[in-house]
């Protein structure tokens, strides 16, 4: 059963135009279309990765799902209920069910809170359990993220390394016993040698504690190691979704192809192909109605700039790409692979 469902979720930001510009020069209010008609499903016990470059709308999507931002239109359904129509009690329940892990472990911990109190803060605020039970849950949680409670509980964040801090951040999200965790680039601030430890920890805990995870990152190598399914976004539009290995090994959308061929490989003998892409990423201010990748796409024709294909994937096994020219794209890559 789907735990979370996004239906046509759209979020626009207005770009501030000065009063004089608006009234006297008649300049219209411009809109940044950060997320456009996004459809996706997160099933129980599933890790879905969202990948894309900066400005593709992945963080906005996270904020909308977490209830920190309202969508301009569309619906977010959690266990079949609309998140924006929650009453106060439902909201409390939702904040218990859904937790976020943030990017920067150096800024997401209160420097004046001891580690124990940091982790206990969530359950205390929502009065989930009596204090004695909170204490035992916090201790076992600290243990399962690899921080000995007796040793770390009384310390302050400045006494911990980056990796240890990120473990605290994970512990304070998971102590709430969430059904769904939203992780926004949780590894990007950490050193390479300890990243794998945190990644394995998250993977392991997701299995043991039965939560679903939405993992957002720009790093496809990391997503390849954690996600069951992968969604690729470009300037607010979902361009491809499917099982991770299929998306990475047999990408269909021209953008996904370019993105994957640009990822460096830690092996000096492997030579990558040159990504087929032109120009630079723009900001999605008043974009044309069609596919936003059109200006950079080597395969685009007039249909592409006029019509946008929405991705609508319900089934886990579905591998879909939002492209009008899939036949041409796949035909050409077959030709090149034969040569």
């Amino acid at each position: 059963m789907a735990l979370l469902e996004l239906k046509d979720v759209t979020r626009h930001y207005e770009v501030k135009t000065g009063l004089i510009d608006r009234v006297f020069r008649g300049k219209p209010i411009r809109k940044i279309k950060a997320v456009e008609s996004l459809n996706m499903v997160l099933n129980e016990n599933e890790v879905v990765g969202i990948a894309g470059e900066s400005g593709c709308g992945k963080s906005t999507t996270c904020m909308i799902i977490a209830g920190l931002l309202q969508p301009s239109s569309g619906e977010v359904l959690y266990q079949g209920k609309r998140v924006d129509q929650f009453n106060t009690q439902d909201q409390r329940w939702y904040r218990h069910q859904v937790q976020m892990i943030f990017q920067d472990p150096y800024e997401s911990l209160n420097p004046r809170f001891r580690i124990f109190d940091t982790v206990a803060e969530g359950p205390r605020a929502l009065r989930l359990w009596p204090e004695s039970e909170i204490a035992s849950k916090v201790e076992s949680m600290l243990g399962s993220v690899g921080l000995e409670p007796g040793k770390y509980g009384d310390r302050y964040p400045h006494e911990l390394s980056g990796g240890e801090r990120q473990r605290v951040v994970i512990a304070s999200a998971l102590v709430m016993e969430p059904r769904m965790v939203i992780a926004d680039e949780p590894l990007s601030m950490l050193d390479v040698s300890i990243r794998a430890g945190i990644l394995e920890l998250l993977k392991d805990l997701a299995k043991k504690r039965h939560f679903s995870c939405l993992y957002v990152s720009h790093d496809l190598s990391i997503l390849g190691h954690i996600a069951d399914r992968l969604m690729i976004m470009y300037l607010g539009q979902a361009v491809e979704i499917g099982p991770t290995t299929e998306v990475i090994q047999k990408p269909q959308h021209p953008y996904t192809k370019a993105l994957i061929s640009a990822v460096p490989v830690p092996d000096p003998r492997i030579k990558r192909g040159i990504p087929k892409i032109s120009g630079d990423i723009t900001r999605p201010i008043d974009p044309p109605p069609g596919c936003r990748f059109t200006p950079r796409c080597p395969y685009a024709n007039h249909t592409c700039s006029e019509n946008f294909l929405k991705l609508d994937s319900v089934q886990k096994t579905n591998h879909l790409a939002a492209c009008h020219r899939l036949d041409v794209v796949s035909h050409e890559s077959e030709m090149t692979s034969m040569v």
């Binding site: 040698s193 990243r195 794998a196 430890g197 190598s221 290995t245 990475i248 490989v265 830690p266």
Partner: peptide, 16 residues
């Protein structure tokens, strides 16, 4: 410790 996009599912290590 470094994940590679060409070796999905390979075991990664972390240095304690």
């Amino acid at each position: 410790a470094f994940p590679s996009i060409q070796k999905l599912g390979q075991e990664l290590v972390s240095i304690p």
